[in-house]
Amino acid sequence: MPEYTDIELIEMYRDANRSHYAFNLLVKKYREKIYFFVRRMVIDHDDADDVVQNIFIKVWNNLGSFREDSKLFTWLYRIAVNESLSFLKSKQLRSYLSLTSPEAMMIKSLHDDNYFDGTEIQRRLTEAIIKLPKKQQLVFNMRYYDELSYEEMSEILTTSVGALKASYHFAVKKIEESVTAN
């Protein structure tokens, strides 16, 4: 199957006869990146699956109005960030009813997850990330795992590069403290 650029995919999508084909190619191109980004935020596989499906349905509905003043990848990431945060917010509301903190629920979910086979140190790292404030969590995941540049992160999160660097610095410090303390 040929590898299309983002611009070619968008042009193909705008042709009504080929929009489904273009969309399938787009899903195929970005599904893993988006899935693992969401998974690291929501931890549970089933939750990540729901969020990823919502993200791609939003992409289908709004790709027609996508303005090419930003990169498609950046736009996709922004949708993924918003959907992940919305999901975590709704989960937080549910946690008030169950009198358990959302972080505790996620750590429990990590322990019970059949689809996590990381080492002990990886589990500790993931727990440390869960305990971070959401903004630092996003910044750390984007920088450490997805290796995005600060400029790309700045465009996605609409935050200055300096603030992102500071967030990443604090996130790393907290993770180090948390992991070494255990």
């Binding site: 689809y115 996590f116 990381g118």
Partner: peptide, 24 residues
Amino acid sequence: PGFKVPVGYFDTLGERISDQVNQV
């Protein structure tokens, strides 16, 4: 990475999304 997915998850993900998209 410590996270893994069920076997064949990504192969079916596209189809499941397409099914939902076709309904809308």
